[in-house]
Computed example of a mutant assay.
Amino acid sequence: MTEKTNGLEAALAQASSPSWTQRARAGRDLASFAGISEAAEALVDLLLDVEDTAVTRQTAEALTRVGSVPAIRLVALALAQADDHRADWLQTGVHDAIVGPGGAPDVAAACEKLAQDPEEAVRRGAADILAWADGPSF
């Protein structure tokens, strides 16, 4: 087993931890694996974490920092399923990544690609994320 595979397995195990800090760490660690279906499923669950909004915020920030189409797609999917409260924390996580050190320069390009996604929920979520990235709050 490679080191990368071990990291994926460890992060997947942490994603279901009762500890919010371990779940938040799992979100950060899994972000680079957004294109792998097992990780993607766990990441959407972490983005919609019902127990702690810090998990939502930190996972959204990590995925936004990755900035790939698969990573931003997961944030868009979660946004489509989120209630207003959770959506606010998703937006905060995206904001943290964009204004933080190094920013998240690939977000707009990823959102533009996702505007062509076959899933309407993804297209809507990507449009919202693009608006956040271009909006006055950033």
Rank of each mutant, 00 (worst) to 15 (best):
A115L: 05
R124I: 11
T2I: 13
L48Y: 06
Q14S: 14
G93Y: 02
S17I: 07
I129L: 10
L114V: 11
A82Y: 06
A42L: 08
D45G: 12
R86E: 13
G93E: 00
E3D: 13
A76G: 06
V122R: 02
A97S: 12
D29T: 09
T64A: 09
A31H: 02
I36V: 14
L74I: 07
A115P: 00
A31W: 01
H95C: 07
V122W: 00
G67T: 11
G27F: 03
A26Y: 02
D96H: 13
H95N: 08
R23L: 06
A131C: 09
A42M: 08
L8R: 06
A78T: 05
L8G: 02
V66S: 02
G35H: 04
L30Q: 01
P101I: 04
T53Q: 14
T59G: 03
A40W: 03
E9Q: 15
Q14C: 11
G7A: 14
T53C: 13
L12R: 06
A62N: 08
L90C: 05
W89Y: 15
E61K: 13
F138C: 08
A82W: 04
Q91E: 11
S16C: 11
E9R: 15
D83Q: 15
D88E: 15
R23Q: 04
T2M: 14
R65A: 07
G103H: 06
E120S: 07
R124N: 10
R25W: 06
A54T: 15
A110F: 03
A11D: 03
I36W: 06
L8C: 11
S37G: 13
T5W: 12
A121R: 08
A39K: 02
T53V: 14
Q14I: 02
L63A: 02
E120C: 04
A26P: 01
A109S: 15
V66P: 02
P136S: 13
L46Q: 02
A39V: 05
A80H: 14
C111S: 11
A78R: 00
W89G: 01
A26G: 10
I72K: 03
D52V: 10
E9S: 15
A131P: 03
D88I: 09
V75H: 00
S32N: 04
D52Q: 14
G102P: 01
D52G: 10
D29V: 07
D29N: 12
V55K: 00
E9P: 04
R73I: 09
L90K: 01
L43Q: 01
V122A: 00
M1F: 15
T59E: 03
V99F: 11
F33T: 01
V94L: 10
V55R: 00
A15D: 06
A126W: 01
V107T: 11
A76F: 02
T59A: 05
A87E: 09
R57Q: 14
S137W: 12
L63F: 03
F138P: 04
L74F: 04
T21H: 09
A80F: 07
A108V: 15
L48D: 05
P105V: 08
R123M: 10
A127C: 11
A34T: 04
V122K: 00
V50I: 13
S137H: 11
L63E: 01
L43P: 00
Q91L: 12
A104T: 02
V94T: 09
A108H: 11
